[in-house]
Design a protein around this nucleic acid. Structure first.
Lengths: 231, 231
DNA sequence: GGAAAAAGTTGAGCCAGATCATGTTTTTGA
DNA sequence: TCAAAAACATGATCTGGCTCAACTTTTTCC
């Protein structure tokens, strides 16, 4: 964690649509209660159990949101977020404790915004609160989707779903550099590391995805979706 | 589905805290765009894939929110809601399609409120939108909790978690009449019917819960929580 | 009120996926 | 630059939980 810098926000060129609805005055308010931080790959951005004092806007990079395991050291990766996403919204009005951790998957830059100012914005700017509700809703439906996958699909189907999700939702491209280690891939799909390796091997051998030194290419989306649905 | 009746809302004695923040004028507006319906046990209240034209307030009774399976006939029960809960909020601002079904677990009475008026309320009453955000956040965190349970705990642990959840969150009492069939219990905990039966048998035989003709009693909450955590 | 249907129970066997063991490749850092 | 550590890969074995099968109990509805 380094490279701290105050930011005015008003003249920020890469702000989220969430903040685009704010007035100039409100943006200045945010700027005063905001700090921009750089995180190296692997660094923890928010710790499960800690006080939720801020929300996190991903300015650049890639982060994972995950739940830590109380027994073993197998976490559960709930979601992957690229730039332009906001994390921590589900802790806005609850017990003010993070019920998940967030860590950088690659070198990332985030804006941490004090939670009080965000609460205030929800109160005074209805466009902003609509935006918050939209994001929470999306996360909700996605969680249901994953829950269904984990309970009803088997290994290859879950891995296929994960590949499709990464391509479509995270990278918005049929090819991408795999940001997850095998262990993380296992934690994302709810299987053991060995099973994750085998599932990836299967998809590759059947010509569904290409995989060369860390670069993933979706080769046959149609069949991949078939497996994702019925595997 | 029967017993349709228009309702003024203004003089409703059992409204949700969500609506308590509305002005008299806003409540009248809701009343005009609302209809109260009775559902018999088993009846479907909202159908996955249908247009989301309304949100649902549970006035009395008990309902399940579940995802239908595309292949077999094993659904996934995501949550159980007693009176005073609102369902359908995660479809407020998305593609306007229900991504889940809702059905009555026992005879229930619900107020169906047009989604447009709810959207409008979010826009003009910030206390209302805070209330919506709170509910969405709770659902979010709960989904993460369940996701963790399904991937990291085994049969008895998941069943113990389900019993604790029903007692604490749904019925707010250590004793309750089991509203779920064995099949539904299996769909709620992500296991087969036979495994659900065995898990319940296990909990009963070990003196953790009492179970006589449909009545569940939590006998040893401490040990039950142990199993829920490490089982 | 009684037959048919649905729900619940229990044991036996099987299989998907976890674990174990072992070797290879890549990354890290002194 | 090179050795130690971490990540990756793969075959062998084991097991938790699913499926199958057979039976009992409860509910449904003519």
């Amino acid at each position: 964690m380094a490279d701290e810098q105050q930011n005015t926000c008003v003249d920020c060129t890469q702000m989220s649509d969430c903040f685009r609805v704010l007035s100039k005055e409100e943006l200045e308010l945010v700027g005063q209660k905001m700090v921009r931080l750089s995180f190296r790959k692997g660094e923890i951005i928010a710790k499960q159990g800690a006080f939720a004092t801020h929300i996190m806007f991903v300015k650049s990079g890639l982060v994972k949101l995950y739940r830590e395991s109380e027994n073993d050291q197998n976490d559960l990766i709930i979601n992957i977020y690229a730039a332009d996403n906001i994390l921590g919204l589900s802790s806005l009005f609850g017990d003010s404790i993070f019920h998940y951790s967030v860590a950088a998957l690659e070198d990332s830059s985030l804006c941490l915004i004090e939670i009080n100012i965000v609460r205030e914005l929800v109160g005074r700017n209805s466009d902003f609160s609509v935006s918050v509700i939209k994001r929470l809703s999306r996360n909700n439906l996605l969680a249901y989707e994953i829950l269904y996958a984990v309970t009803h699909k088997q290994l290859n189907g879950r891995m296929a779903s994960a590949m499709i999700y990464l391509a479509r939702e995270v990278f918005e491209s049929s090819g991408f550099t795999m940001p997850l280690s095998r262990k993380e891939l296992a934690e994302f799909t709810g299987m053991s590391v060995m099973s994750a390796v085998r599932a990836m091997k299967d998809l590759r051998q059947n010509g569904l995805i290409g995989s060369e030194n860390g670069r993933i290419e979706i080769l046959d989306m149609e069949r991949l979706e078939q497996i994702s649905k019925f595997g």
